[in-house]
Design a protein around this nucleic acid. Structure first.
Lengths: 210, 210
DNA sequence: CAACTTGTGTATCGAGTAGTATGAAAGCCT
DNA sequence: AGGCTTTCATACTACTCGATACACAAGTTG
């Protein structure tokens, strides 16, 4: 059956992308309804906004989902068991860094920058999706470390959560570097060097050390 | 000469600490004047607030200065030329991590979390002090790397800015881990492992590798 | 004491916030 | 065409934001 009633004057799907840009840039609380209304479809009215999205918070949730389903996919390789764990980690770092520096959207990672997106307790549920995503990525890094141990590539006494913290914290920090204007090439050089933390835990490295 | 006029009903110095806690927890924009007034001296009035501090932004500047003069000192060892550069880096990381997890103040580093503290352009000058502090810390890490190279401890082809990015990004990420509830012991284990990035660039490591 | 200086309390400012009520406009269906 | 459904435009609500005007209170100084 066809759609009834007057058709919407703007592209709802495109609107989510436009809103995502604002939330990504400014966070939840610092993005005002006026900004959102002005950015969507070249300007829409308040009733159109609420009819389409329900509320600012509901729109944010949709934007977060959109982000997680698209941009955030760069770290999906962490769960790809076909990849060698070291490759999975390095690929995740390189893909994410590259994505964070793309020109056509705000710099940095929305998930990482989202820690301060909705600081007030009232909106704790707002950034819940982002918090869970960070937790998931952390688990992904740890899973790679564990796979490395199980495969005998990493020393048995390696602490997977601590090694995961190295890559996770580094990746979260990249968002800040991107916002601060540190060049992508510097970050890419950093990735090469931070991978030494993996190699230091590897069996071959240990053997050579003693 | 003694002070004239009616004496202030609250401790201005203590007030800055109380305000600092709020700004540290929530950032600049998300901290409201009502919260600040309620927190200072057990509750003060708006005129008292403006008479004492001038404006919300001016108070934030004082709080930022207070933070930089106290808590942020943990990374000062980066400029201590009496310390071996590797020690300086590791000490900065360990001291900062420990500080970020202390019980009597908000978790994480105000300077790092401050990226999203004042997202709107209007208040860009607000977080300027924090941005400059991040830049300074980054330079400190790079200076240590450069000292390592000059001392012949690190390979001559080491990129100091890239190596600095490793420690800087890691440290910035620790703020997020702290907010997310990752334990300090995990972070401390991560510090031990991230130092491998330094060792991998060292001459001894290179010699052993070939 | 009176004169002077400074902080406080009440009450309020204009602007901006998220969110709505109401009625007209624009499409589909029979 | 006429009925039905949905969106859109204008105007407005109740509230919070940061910041002030003004009169009074609480001290010091002569």
């Amino acid at each position: 059956m066809a759609v009834m009633g007057r058709p919407r004057g703007f592209d709802r799907d495109k609107a989510i992308d436009e809103a995502l840009d604002l939330f990504w840039q400014n966070g939840f609380e610092a993005t005002s309804l006026s900004q959102l209304k002005a950015a969507i479809g070249g300007g829409i009215s308040a009733p159109s906004f609420y009819a389409a999205f329900g509320s600012k918070e509901a729109l944010f949730q949709e934007c977060a989902r959109r982000y997680l389903d698209t941009y955030a996919r760069v770290t999906e390789c962490l769960w790809d068991e076909a990849l060698a764990p070291r490759e999975a980690v390095e690929t995740a770092l390189r893909r994410s860094a590259k994505m964070q520096y793309e020109r056509h959207h705000p710099k940095g990672c929305m998930v990482g920058l989202g820690v301060m997106s909705a600081p007030s307790e009232e909106h704790a549920s707002v950034s819940d999706a982002l918090t869970r995503s960070r937790s998931r990525t952390r688990a992904g890094f740890a899973a790679c470390a564990q796979r490395g141990i199980d495969a005998g590539e990493l020393a048995a006494d390696t602490h997977p959560r601590a090694l995961a913290a190295v890559f996770d914290a580094f990746l979260l920090g990249v968002s800040v570097l991107a916002r601060d204007g540190v060049g992508l090439s510097v970050v890419e050089g950093g990735i090469t060097q931070v991978m030494a933390a993996w190699d230091a835990a590897s069996i071959r490295s240990k053997r050579r050390a003693r």
